[in-house]
């Protein structure tokens, strides 16, 4: 299971990089189209603004998973009250 977690951590990191490139590429494609409307600009700018931090979070999640931070043996007690 720990090996699977590591593999998926790597996959999520690669996916995050791919998405970080894909989103601005799609937005630019839309902005360059002849049929572009004002609504497209607002929509895509909001999408990129909100998704880039989420993608960074996804990459970080993959990084933690790859480093075994979610593995059984890495148990670290979160401070509870």
């Amino acid at each position: 299971m720990d090996l699977l977690r590591k593999i998926f951590g790597l996959i999520w990191m690669i996916t995050a990089v791919f998405l970080a490139i894909l989103l601005p590429y799609l937005a630019l494609g839309k902005f360059r189209a002849e049929t572009v409307t004002q609504e497209d600009y607002v929509f895509w700018i909001i999408i990129i603004t909100i998704f880039i931090p989420i993608i960074i979070g996804f990459m970080l999640f993959g990084f933690y998973a790859f480093n075994g931070n979610y593995n059984n043996r890495q148990v670290s007690k979160t401070k509870t009250n």
């Binding site: 998926f8 979610y70 593995n71 059984n72 148990v75 979160t78 509870t80 009250n81």
Partner: peptide, 16 residues
């Protein structure tokens, strides 16, 4: 689903 299945792991965190 994949993330939840693999990573929601009661042995890796404590709850209240």
């Amino acid at each position: 689903l994949i993330t939840g299945f693999l990573f929601i792991n009661k042995n890796s965190y404590t709850t209240i």
